[in-house]
Simulated scan of single mutants.
Amino acid sequence: MNAALLVACVLVAALPGVFAYAAPVTLWIVRARARGAGVFLDDRRALTIGPRIDTVLLDRWGTVTTGQLRVVAIDPVEPDHERNLRWFAGALGHAADDPVGRAIARLSSRGKLSQVQQHHGGGLSGSVDRHPVRLGSPEWLGMEARNGIGVTVGVQVDARPIGYITVADEVRPHAADDVTRLRAAQVEPILVSEDTEGNTRQLADACGITQWYAATPADQRERLVDEHRRRGRVVAVASPTPVPSADLILSDVESTEGIRLLDLDVGRVATALALTRSAARATVRSRRTGILLGLVGIGLAVASVLSLPLAIGYAVLACAVVVATAAPAAPTTSVTSPDPAPSAT
């Protein structure tokens, strides 16, 4: 065997090792970067499917919103009733276990609560500092209904109406920018909500989302996924309630297959999908680089440019270059930790 052939054999034998390093290094780097962004890519299947996603269904709760409601309007019957409206409604709200009550509770401290009762379909009643208070549907309280955006409740103290309080979704400040990021990556965001058509439309408009589904509870979302898949779409679902028929699940539930997120922030959703695409591109790039370097090395060997020691050095250098090209680019991210709790209005 002449020297050129021996050198070529050394390089050909080194190529499998070069490729063997590329994939694990890519996976290790992308997982490390993902963890820093609150994205956990423990399911290797997600790295395969993620780059093909072209549609993502975003649950209203926690994706484009913080997952909480906030008070957006306080409307006392008389101007001097506002302080009492805040105090009595907020105090009674501390006894509520629903999002509306929790939002109202941030208006004041707890006070001395007693005789609290939940009236299903109506609201909440109780005694605050020995004053009888009722908080709930205006119709239940015999008050005029309000049909604007959000959810409006009436407040009654000492058997007299003192005003209205309106709560609505708290939109994440960067939601519109992250929706734009998804669309720029050729992923169509679709908002899914169990709320009314008017509220869902307003939330979608605030986030720059053009397609949305209102009045759609969690148990009806599998139908939406199937509908879009029949159209040839590859569908991901970002929701606290996983949809098994989705091609990819993004959830903040630890035991869920797919991609686990620190929270469902739409920015984290965009980052997770960007990481899977970046990893796929890096893998292809490292393979092409390895093939090119291998062919160049064999050509140099045939031309008797490389000696055996130089061929070994070239193989080591090629391995280092391929590993370097296996590093995926860090995606743009707008979040690194969950948003703080919203302050009281």
Rank of each mutant, 00 (worst) to 15 (best):
V10T: 07
L11M: 00
L11K: 00
V12I: 15
A13S: 09
A14W: 01
L15V: 09
L15Y: 07
G17L: 09
V18M: 04
V18Q: 02
F19K: 09
F19P: 08
F19E: 10
A20T: 04
A20V: 02
A20Y: 06
Y21L: 12
Y21N: 09
A23F: 12
A23S: 14
V25T: 05
V25F: 05
T26C: 15
L27G: 11
W28H: 13
W28A: 14
W28E: 13
R31H: 08
A32C: 15
R33F: 10
A34P: 06
G36N: 03
G38P: 05
G38D: 08
D42L: 11
D42V: 11
D42G: 12
D43F: 10
D43Q: 10
D43M: 10
R45Q: 14
R45H: 11
A46C: 00
A46Y: 02
L47W: 12
I49K: 13
G50H: 01
P51F: 07
I53V: 12
I53Y: 05
I53A: 09
I53L: 10
D54K: 06
D54Q: 08
D54P: 04
D54E: 06
V56P: 00
V56G: 02
V56K: 03
L57K: 08
L57A: 07
L58Q: 02
D59Q: 14
R60K: 14
R60W: 09
W61S: 15
W61K: 15
T65W: 01
T65E: 01
T66S: 03
T66M: 01
L69E: 05
L69P: 04
R70Y: 02
R70W: 05
V71C: 00
V71Q: 00
A73M: 10
I74K: 00
D75C: 00
P76L: 01
V77M: 15
P79D: 15
P79K: 13
D80S: 12
D80V: 08
D80Y: 09
E82Q: 13
E82F: 10
R83C: 13
N84R: 15
